[in-house]
Simulated assay, not measured.
Amino acid sequence: MTGFLAGHWADAQEAKIGKQAGDPADESLGDHRYAAGVAVIFITGMSGTGKSTVLGELARLGYRTVDTDYGDWMEEVPEPGGAGTELQWCEARIAELIARHEVSGAPLFIAGTVRNQGRFYPRFDQVVLFSAPVEVMLERIAIREGNPFGKARDEREQIIKDTAEVEPLLRASATLEIDTRQPLADTVRQLRDLISPAKTGKP
C-alpha cells in the first residue's frame, strides 16, 4: 500500500477500535468529550466529489464550515522512509479547531482528505464520504474555478488511481456515503439532518 493507504487505514482502524472499546482519549489531540448538542461532521472524498461546493452552500445557510484544503490547516510531513514530504493536517491546529467548537454550542462541518485524518475520527460525530463516478468527477474538475488541481494529465491520472485505491478505504471507515450526483439541495439536507439530536444521540 502507498503511504496514504497504509497510514489512513491504520489510523482509522485504531480510532474505530478505540472508540468501540471506550479507550481514553489521545491527550495529544485534546479532550474527546463533546459539549451537549454540538455536532462535528467530517466530509471526505476524492477531488471532484463536491466537498467545497457543499461547504459553500452550508456556509451560505449560516453554518460554520472549514475546508482544510485552504488556509493554514496543512503542513509538510516527511513520508515514511524519508523519500520526501507530503501534506497532512497540522494536528495541533485541527485539535484546537474541534475543541473550540465542542464548547461553542454550534455545529461544525469540516472537509478534507489527508493521510492522518483517521486520528481524529473519535472527535467526529459522523464521517461522511462523498462519492461520484470517476467520469463525473473529472468533468467537474475540468470546469471548476479556484482550484487548479486535476487540470494536468498526470494529475487526472493520479485522481483515477487514487479513486481505485483510496476510496474503498475511505468507504470502509465512513459512517455515511452520499452520491453527490443528486441535487445539491438534497446533499445539504442529508448533512443538516445529521446534526439533529436524533442523529447525534445528544440532547
Score class of each variant (00 low, 15 high):
Arg192Asp: 00
Lys161Asn: 15
Glu135Asp: 06
Ile94Leu: 15
Arg100Phe: 06
Glu155Ser: 04
Arg100Pro: 12
Thr44Glu: 08
His8Met: 13
Glu57Cys: 07
Gly50Ala: 06
Ala142Tyr: 02
Phe149Cys: 01
Leu97Cys: 15
Gly81Thr: 14
Ala21Cys: 01
Pro203Ser: 11
Asn116Tyr: 08
Gly3Ile: 03
Ala12Trp: 00
Glu177Cys: 14
Lys161Asp: 14
Lys16His: 08
Tyr63His: 15
Gly7Met: 09
Ile94Ala: 10
Ser131Pro: 01
Ile178Gly: 01
Leu176Ser: 06
Tyr34Phe: 13
Leu176Cys: 13
Ile143Val: 11
Ala152Arg: 03
Gly30Trp: 00
Asp67Lys: 09
Thr113Leu: 14
Gly84Asp: 10
Arg100Asp: 15
Ile160Pro: 12
Gly48Glu: 05
Lys151Tyr: 05
Pro122Asn: 01
Leu194Tyr: 11
Thr49Tyr: 04
Val40Pro: 12
Leu108His: 08
Gly18Tyr: 06
Ala25Gln: 05
Ile98Arg: 14
Arg192Cys: 11
Thr180Arg: 11
Gln190Tyr: 08
Arg119Cys: 04
Arg100Gln: 14
Glu57His: 12
Arg33Glu: 12
Met46Gly: 04
Ser131Cys: 08
Ala10Pro: 04
Ser196Val: 10
Lys16Ile: 02
Ile98Lys: 11
Gly30Leu: 08
Ala59Thr: 14
Gly150His: 03
Ala164Gln: 12
Ser104Thr: 11
Ala142Cys: 03
Ala132Ile: 01
Leu108Ala: 05
Phe109Met: 07
Ala6Pro: 00
Glu177Tyr: 03
Leu61Thr: 07
Arg123Cys: 01
Arg93Tyr: 03
Glu135Pro: 03
Asp69Ala: 05
Arg192Glu: 12
